[in-house]
């Protein structure tokens, strides 16, 4: 069910965001999904640096990366930049 949307009298003017961008999951835009091979990955974190959506997560306990699939749009920059070819883009 679609949540009730605000009227023009209720939203702030000037296109100012009244909710954080994390309330807007953009993962459903994705057609290709990044999958990592943990054997090949050396945790260099280049994917973390390059990701334009901050959708590469870092687990400091496990000292390992992960993907925030709610926000990953599947652009493939991580796979392209990975020096170990540890990320593969697969069809959803």
């Amino acid at each position: 069910m679609t949540p009730k949307q605000k009227t023009w009298k209720e939203v702030p003017i000037g296109g100012v965001c009244w909710r954080p961008s994390t309330d807007y999951p953009t993962g459903d835009w994705r057609t290709l999904k990044p999958i990592r091979n943990p054997e090949k990955c050396n945790r260099c974190l280049l994917c973390f640096i390059f990701c334009p959506d901050a959708a590469i997560t870092w687990d400091s306990e496990a000292e390992d990366i992960g993907f925030a699939y709610d926000y990953c749009k599947g652009c493939g920059i991580c796979a392209h930049e990975c020096p170990k070819d540890a990320i593969e883009m697969i069809s959803e």
């Binding site: 965001c17 009244w18 909710r19 954080p20």
Partner: peptide
């Protein structure tokens, strides 16, 4: 004058 507006933290 700068008016107040609702920001993303509500």
């Amino acid at each position: 004058n700068i008016p107040l507006i609702q920001g993303h933290q509500g």
